[in-house]
Design a protein around this nucleic acid. Structure first.
Length: 353
DNA sequence: AATGAAAGCAACCGCGGATAT
DNA sequence: TATATCCGCGGTTGCTTTCAT
């Protein structure tokens, strides 16, 4: 037999918590400690589900919660961590003392996701620069008839030309972890050393982190499989995409928004520079790598962006085959061209978006 | 001052791994 | 070992707030 039921589903109160309920819950947990959420409502005299009590405590009532706006430093950390971890909000929150996963998730969805994912590319005269223009954040308030009319016209015009398909958000990449078996030690292997990464053990799980302490490491999409390192190509994240273009470079790619100043990050032997103009609405991204061969290819990849926005499927194909023409890259990219054609297209779409 | 669209966010829901029986 | 429940997480919903019209 299993455990006793969680709670009575009937008669449970839902919706917003009152100040009185908050007080009851706070006093109970202060006296009895956290945990045993199933028994808590009955013992505390609350008509709430245990889950609801836990959520209220964790996200709102805990004493160690930080109140107020997310700082620039915290925002940078969120962006960096999200670039490597995906939507693992609890993991991201664990690096931000006083912030909850729910708070970070909401902040991302309302403030950051737009900045990171919806900027549109356009052509520039400089071959090694991508200029990304952020859409102006819409102010609150009623939409004017003029704006609605304008938007309608805009949509109609756009439909005349073939549009790129909607760019799917990259799904949460699988966690590059390995169960901490007794055969492994809490040390960085020689291969990890060569890759410019460190093995970090978190609650019995091995996570591959960068050596740069202040750069939250995007995780290489590599897993230990029977003692061997296998490259997994699925292009589900920015890191995968950049790695697909520059497999020779070790380390990891990151996207960061350092505010209104030029920034440069080096992870492994890869570099991702961002310059944000004073207007804050335009970004220039320089992608380069320390190794000259990598740099050549990275810049080549960036030149893709100089094609017309309405990149055709044929152009996508030529892009990939063009990348494969390079002798040194042929082998590495062979597997790229063997993956699902739709996935290739999505990859390029996402990269250009 | 009233209206209503959009933003912000607290809370709910469902799923999956962990764990108790 | 099988089964049922707990617990925590991420996705989603819907209420509240804001503010242009």
């Amino acid at each position: 037999m299993g455990r006793t039921p969680c709670c009575e589903k009937v008669g449970m109160k839902k919706g917003r918590w009152t100040a009185e309920e908050d007080e009851i819950l706070t006093k109970y947990i202060q006296a009895n400690g956290e945990g045993s959420w199933r028994r808590l409502p009955k013992n505390a005299g609350l008509l709430r589900c245990g889950k609801s009590c836990r959520l209220r405590w964790v996200n709102y009532l805990r004493a160690d919660l930080k109140r107020g706006d997310i700082s620039v430093e915290e925002e940078n950390t969120i962006v960096k961590l999200h670039a490597s971890l995906g939507n693992r909000w609890s993991l991201i929150a664990s690096h931000l003392p006083g912030r909850t996963d729910n708070e970070i998730k909401n902040y991302w969805n309302t403030h950051l996701s737009r900045t990171i994912y919806t900027f549109r590319s356009r052509t520039t005269n400089k071959p090694d620069i991508i200029t990304l223009t952020l859409p102006p954040k819409r102010k609150r308030g009623r939409t004017s008839r003029w704006a609605m009319k304008k938007n309608k016209t805009y949509c109609a015009q756009k439909q005349k030309q073939p549009l790129l398909p909607a760019v799917p958000l990259p799904p949460t990449p699988p966690l590059e972890t390995e169960k901490h078996s007794s055969t492994h030690e809490n040390t960085t292997t020689q291969e990890e050393e060569n890759l410019g990464t460190n093995a970090v053990w978190v609650e019995g799980e091995k996570e591959i982190m960068n050596k740069e302490d202040d750069i939250w490491g995007p995780y290489d999409k590599e897993v230990i499989n029977g003692g061997e390192w296998d490259q997994v190509l699925s292009f589900e994240s920015f890191n995968d995409i950049m790695n697909s273009y520059c497999p020779q470079a070790s380390g990891c790619w990151t996207i960061s928004d350092e505010g209104y100043r030029e920034s440069s990050e080096v992870v492994g032997n890869k570099t991702c520079d961002h310059t944000v103009t004073s207007s804050g609405r335009e970004k220039r991204c320089f992608f380069s790598a320390k190794a000259s061969s990598d740099s050549d290819l990275c810049q080549s990849a960036v030149q893709l962006d100089h094609k017309d926005e309405s990149v055709s499927w044929e152009q996508h194909q030529s892009l990939l085959s063009w990348l494969c023409e390079d002798e040194d890259w042929e082998k590495d990219l062979q597997s790229v061209c063997e993956i699902d054609p739709q996935k290739q297209k999505d990859m390029v779409d996402w990269f250009l978006s």
